[in-house]
Design a protein around this nucleic acid. Structure first.
Lengths: 231, 231
DNA sequence: CTGGTTTATCGTACATCGTACGATAAGATT
DNA sequence: AATCTTATCGTACGATGTACGATAAACCAG
């Protein structure tokens, strides 16, 4: 029959296990669960990128048969959706009272969070927005509102920061990848004559990504602050 | 399938074809070429998105055998690289003297150019930078430099605008896609209680993407201009 | 206990896709 | 005529997502 388990991880998932006191290390897999599937999927993605996630491999790693996954998950796409949102679940920053500083920390954490799992950056533009991502957007909007941004301008501000951060993250992750795999000869070749400006500023050689992100973010926030009627 | 340019069955192989006459419309495919391959690949991608591009389908559309493509192209990845860069080849704006207005036109054209081929937005973060893309970056850098941005700040400015534009384009394209295909139930559900701010400003309902992009861009440029020592 | 339903797992099989590996046939060159 | 180069294509193989039951354990009513 069609798998209709649906529903969140209501099942205890972690505990229970029961395994009747068997071995320790290569322990008898404590049975499948959505949480375990997603966690293992993230492991595989971290290890070998997008191509590293195969349903068979995922099942193997879980000590299960390939088709067993499909009782918990509709299809591979869903696994990717869940893995992506799982990455965004971990927040590693604490709020501060200064709204501007708060936003900066928030977005820097967001970015570093995705860069820790470089596959997520290239995946995000392809998938729907998960709940964890929505929560982050809400926090961002709240901080801006707290900072005095009027509702009429709030959407523009939110999207601008989002766009900036996503672009920076994706670009950064993309470069890391091309450095590793050295994709063919399409690699950016900027010549002195064809690209004098880029060549002069050594655009592609400067690797202070964090600094560029931070300073660009400052520019954007300055732009918001510069508008009359807003802090 | 009216077109039977060649590929006749039988061992006699293509009967010379010798299309000396140059037929009119469904003319006998003028033999393969890199340009034709890339152009047709873009057609397929436009029609059915990333999943629409299959090597067999591409060859069929070209009236050729699947493996014939591989004489001109290393592999499918290369086709994607070339298709992506081909999209960026068409510029549809004319420069103006005002550098700020020039940049705005440039980036709006860039964005609309990619949105006309929505697959390109989701593809870009995965591929290396092609020559046409580098040319656009060069023009952007030159305009900024012309506007008085010092070399020391030029990289930050270029990347900031790039990041902002890429993020906006990718996000926009992503939403168009999820609207069409209605990807599962992961669709953003923002509740009054969990996301009061987003709910209040109707973040996901506002569909004035162009306006949001334009106004966000203004903020960013304001940020540049606000710095002392720069225009 | 017995029989039936639900829950969860897995083996087999199939369709699809990228592409490796020659075979083959112009055209060019010797 | 012999040989090399350019270009095309058929066949086949391996990888992959997943449809389709078969199967067993857990649970429950009688």
């Amino acid at each position: 029959m069609a798998a209709r388990p649906r529903g969140g991880s209501g099942k205890s998932g972690r505990g229970v296990v029961e395994t009747a006191g068997l071995a320790a290390k290569p322990g008898p897999e404590p049975s499948l669960s959505l949480d375990r599937i997603v966690a293992t999927a993230v492991e595989l993605l971290d290890a070998d990128g997008l191509d590293g996630l195969k349903m068979r491999r995922l099942a193997d790693r879980l000590g299960a048969g390939a088709m067993s996954l499909y009782w918990h998950v509709d299809n591979k796409e869903k696994v990717l959706d869940l893995a992506l949102d799982a990455v965004l679940a971990q927040r590693a920053y604490h709020s501060v009272e200064d709204w501007r500083e708060d936003i900066i920390r928030m977005l820097e954490d967001w970015r570093s969070c995705m860069l820790r799992h470089s596959w997520s950056a290239s995946l995000l533009p392809l998938r729907a927005l998960g709940p964890n991502l929505m929560n982050r957007l809400e926090r961002l909007g709240a901080a801006l509102s707290r900072g005095g941004v009027k509702d009429a301008e709030l959407n523009v501000a939110i999207w601008s920061l989002w766009n900036f951060t996503m672009g920076a993250t994706i670009t950064r992750a993309s470069f890391t990848r091309t450095d590793d795999t050295q994709t063919s000869g399409n690699e950016a070749t900027l010549s002195d004559t064809a690209h004098p400006t880029l060549y002069r500023t050594r655009l592609l050689s400067d690797d202070d990504w964090d600094g560029v992100f931070r300073r660009g973010l400052d520019f954007l926030l300055d732009g918001f602050a510069g508008q009359p009627g807003r802090i």
